[in-house]
C-alpha cells in the first residue's frame, strides 16, 4: 500500500509542479457482486501529466469491502501516445497494474491497448498478460520460493457508442471486459453506461452504471454484480482535448 501511494504521490507532485499540464479524475464507486459479502465502496483517483505528446498517468484506488483484507484496491501506471495512421487517430496505451488482493495474494497485470474514435463509435482493442503471486511476507511465512502463476495472454476490448446530446451532455454505452482497476478475462464481458455532463470547458462530472454477468461463453448467463460510479474530472492548463486520458475507464 505504501509503495502504491508513494508512486501516486510522486506523479501527483510532478503534476503540481507542472500545473499547467496537469489533469485529474476523482471517483467514488459502490457496488455488489457474488463475492463481495455485501456492498462495497471504492475511492479512485488518477492524475495525468502531459509532456511533448506523451501522457503519463498514475492511478490508485482504495477499497472498503468485507471481502478484502487490504484497503488498497490497485495501483496503475500508464503511458500513452497518439499517432495518425492513414488519416486515423490511434492512441496507444501501455499500462501496468498491481492489485494486492489479500495478505497472501497479489495480482499483477500489464498490457497494451489501442484506441480509435470515430464520430459515433469508440474502439479499444489490446492484449494483457497477468500473473498471480504471493506476497513477500507470506512467502517467507509459508516457506515458499519464487513461484508465480502466469496467464500469458488475454484480449481486452471495448466497443462504445458515443452519443452527444447538445453541447454539454453525452451518453457512452459500452460492451467491454475492462474498466477502472478491472481487467476481466475476454470471456467475461460486461456492459457499462457512461453519462457525462460538461460543467465548463475544463471540467466534467460523470456517472457510470455497470452490469456484470458470468457464464456468457457458457451460454448460461447468471447475474454476477453491478456497480455505480460518480466522478469529477478536471483539466488544468492547456492540454489539447484529444490528449486527455483522464477518466479511469479510458486507462
Amino acid at each position: 500500500m505504501i509503495k502504491g501511494f508513494t508512486a501516486f504521490s510522486l506523479i501527483f507532485s510532478v503534476s503540481l509542479v507542472a500545473r499547467s499540464q496537469m489533469s485529474a479524475d476523482l471517483s467514488l464507486t459502490t457496488g455488489s457482486n457474488q463475492v463481495s459479502l455485501g456492498q462495497y465502496g471504492k475511492l479512485g483517483g488518477q492524475f495525468s501529466y502531459f509532456y511533448r505528446g506523451w501522457n503519463f498517468s498514475a492511478g490508485a484506488g482504495a477499497v472498503f469491502s468485507a471481502a478484502r483484507e487490504k484497503k488498497l484496491d490497485a495501483v496503475r501506471l500508464s503511458v500513452s501516445k497518439d499517432y495518425v495512421i492513414k488519416d486515423k487517430n490511434i492512441t496507444t496505451v501501455a499500462f501496468y497494474q498491481f492489485a494486492p488482493f489479500s495478505a497472501r495474494l497479489n495480482d499483477h497485470a500489464a498490457g497494451l491497448l489501442f484506441n480509435h474514435k470515430s464520430r459515433r463509435w469508440y474502439y479499444d482493442l489490446g492484449l494483457n498478460t497477468r500473473f498471480y503471486a504471493f506476497t513477500q511476507k507470506y512467502k517467507g511465512k509459508a516457506g515458499y520460493g519464487e513461484n508465480v502463476l502466469w496467464e500469458p495472454v488475454n484480449v481486452i476490448y471495448r466497443l462504445t457508442w458515443h452519443k452527444p446530446i447538445g453541447d454539454k451532455f453525452e451518453i457512452n454505452p459500452s460492451v467491454t471486459n475492462f474498466d477502472q482497476f478491472i481487467i476481466q478475462q475476454e470471456t467475461n464481458p460486461f456492459v457499462l453506461a457512461d453519462f457525462q455532463y460538461k460543467l465548463n470547458v475544463k471540467s466534467k462530472i460523470y456517472f457510470d452504471v455497470a452490469y456484470q454477468q458470468s457464464g456468457f461463453f457458457n451460454i448460461r448467463v447468471n447475474y454476477f454484480g453491478y456497480y455505480l460510479r460518480g466522478g469529477y474530472k478536471v483539466n488544468i492548463g492547456t492540454i489539447p482535448e484529444n490528449h486527455i486520458k483522464l477518466k479511469p475507464i479510458e486507462l
Binding site: 496467464e151 481487467i183 454476477f224 454484480g225
Partner: peptide, 14 residues
C-alpha cells in the same frame, strides 16, 4: 487462461 481459449473462467474477482 493458459492459452487463448473461448472457455469461460470464473470472473477475476471470484
Amino acid at each position: 487462461r493458459d492459452h487463448h481459449t473461448a472457455s469461460t473462467s470464473p470472473l477475476t474477482d471470484e
